[in-house]
Design a protein around this nucleic acid. Structure first.
Lengths: 107, 107
DNA sequence: AAGTTACGTGACCAAAAGGTCACATGTCAA
DNA sequence: TTGACATGTGACCTTTTGGTCACGTAACTT
């Protein structure tokens, strides 16, 4: 594995994580639409999307003069698999379920 | 969610990911032992471990003059849960299994 | 007590990352 | 074919981050 650095570097910025959140909520958006959700110039957003695309966290498709952006969950799953053992997975998930329950489900 | 930034920033550096790999292979190591695995001064490693501990990815316990380090998988699981839907989880995992099979299992 | 071992702090420097802007190309629509 | 729209590039500046070093404290050993 060589290109994992791109994935982690891409996830390191809060703006990029917010972009993934937006695409997780609804896929196939254009740059201009995503820009309208952020307090940043178009150029900043474009740079961030480029980083996400290079990391394969976002997949793009041109359509006329527009460019549509889609979330790719595969690299995220690979992070999980790197440090969470198959045998401890159930324990970790159960621990988190408990934590969420104690915190009252919503926050 | 506020402190997730610490987690992602911590994971952004290859040296810190390698430290997690080391602890994933075997827990409860001291700073000096971890340092011996890296081409870096003790101070660099200490700084990295501090970042990991602040992010709650590593849990420490003092024992005499030594400080033992343990891997905490919970924040990793939270990353997974943020962008991987319960409904698409099976699909994503299956896709990765297939990918690994096509690549010949080992690399 | 003295020497050795293990960890800790603050300052410092070089490299990388985030964000903006001037400028530029391609595409749709009247 | 003119104008508006959507995306793209390179240079630039500021802030953050990675790494080292001088110096310091605490604990085990003999």
């Amino acid at each position: 594995m060589i290109d994992d650095d791109l994935v982690f570097k891409a996830l390191a910025d809060p703006t990029r994580r917010f972009l993934l959140d937006l695409l997780f909520a609804r896929d196939g958006r254009t740059l201009t639409e995503l820009e309208s959700e952020l307090a940043m110039t178009r150029f900043g957003v474009m740079k961030h999307l480029r980083v996400l695309a290079d990391a394969d966290l976002v997949i793009t498709r041109r359509q006329g003069r527009e460019k549509l952006h889609f979330l790719n969950p595969v690299p995220i799953r690979q992070i999980h698999d790197r440090w969470i053992d198959k045998y401890t997975e159930h324990r970790t998930a159960a621990l988190l379920d408990l934590k969420r329950e104690l915190e009252g489900e919503s926050p």
